[in-house]
Computed example of a mutant assay.
Amino acid sequence: MASSLNIADKTHNVLVEIGDMTLFVKRYFKSFFTIPFEWRELLRQCYVVGNKSLLLVAVTGFILGLVFTLQSRPTLAQFGAVSWMPSMVGISIVREIGPVITALVCAGKIASGMGAEIGSMRVTEQIDAMEVSGTNPFKYLVVTRITATTLMLPLLIIFGDAVALFGSALVEYLKGGVSFVLYFNKVFDAITFNDVVPATIKSFFFGFVIGLVGCYKGYYCEKGTAGVGKASNSAVVYASMILFVVDFIAVFISDIFFEI
C-alpha cells in the first residue's frame, strides 16, 4: 500500500513538473515577442555559451573520432571493407553521434552552469531586487540564455563534427595511409541533403532544451545553498533525459519525411 502511494506521489510530481515547464515555455515565447529585447545581454550569453564551450567540444569531438575509427576499423578489416570507413564514420557522426554527444556534453556544462547561476541569484534575492527596481528578470535572465543556447548549439555541433572527422581522418592516415584529401572526398561524397538537414534542425531543439531546463531549474530554485546544488544537478539530469526523447522524436520524423 505504501509503495503504491509512493509511486502515485512520484507520478503526480512528474506531471506537475511537466505542467510547470510547459507554462515556463509559454512564458518564454510570450516574453520573446514583446519589446524591448535585451540584445547586449543576448550577445554576452552567446559568447559565454559558444566561445567558452569550444575547447570542451573540440576535445570531445577529437576523441570521439579517434575512438570510433579505432574501434570500427578491425571489424571492417575482417570483411575487407576498410574502404567504407570514411563513408560510415562521416554519416554516423553527422547524422546521430556528433549531435547527441555534443549536446550531452554541453548539457553537462551549460545547463548546470545556468541552473547554478540563476539559482544563486534566486537564493540571494537578486531576482526579487530586479523585480522591485522595475527590471523584467525573466526577460533579462531567461529569454536571453535560452535564445543563446538555441542559436549557439548548432554551431558547436558543426564544429564538433568537423573536429571528429579530422580525428577519424588522422587515424586513417596513420593506420591505412589514406590522405586527408581522399578521406574527406569520400566523406562528402557519402553525406547527402537528407543527412545534414535533419541533424541541423534537431540541433536547434537540443539547444532550446538545454537552455530551457537550466533556466527553469535555476529560476525556481529552492532556498539555501543546498537548493542551488540540487538545481544544478537536476538541470543536467533532466536536460539529458529530454534530449534523448527529442532525439527519438526527431529521428522518427526524419525517417518519415527525409527517407525518400
Rank of each mutant, 00 (worst) to 15 (best):
D189I: 10
V236C: 11
G214P: 07
G108T: 02
H12F: 15
N185E: 13
S3V: 14
A77C: 06
V49F: 00
Y216H: 11
A111K: 01
F257D: 10
R95S: 09
R95Q: 07
T22V: 09
F24H: 00
S31R: 09
K139L: 01
V178S: 09
A164I: 06
G211P: 13
S4A: 15
S92M: 08
S92Q: 02
I18C: 04
G224A: 11
M21S: 14
A116Y: 01
G108F: 05
T150I: 05
S31N: 10
V132S: 09
D247R: 07
F32A: 14
I210E: 04
V181Y: 11
G50M: 01
K109S: 10
S31G: 09
A199Y: 03
M241T: 09
A235W: 06
K26W: 12
R95N: 07
I35C: 13
D20L: 05
F184Q: 06
D195W: 00
A81T: 11
R40T: 04
Y219V: 06
G50L: 02
F37A: 04
G50Y: 02
F32S: 03
E131H: 09
A169Y: 01
L182Y: 12
E172Y: 13
R44V: 10
T124C: 07
T150A: 09
K52A: 08
K175F: 15
C106V: 12
P99L: 01
D189K: 11
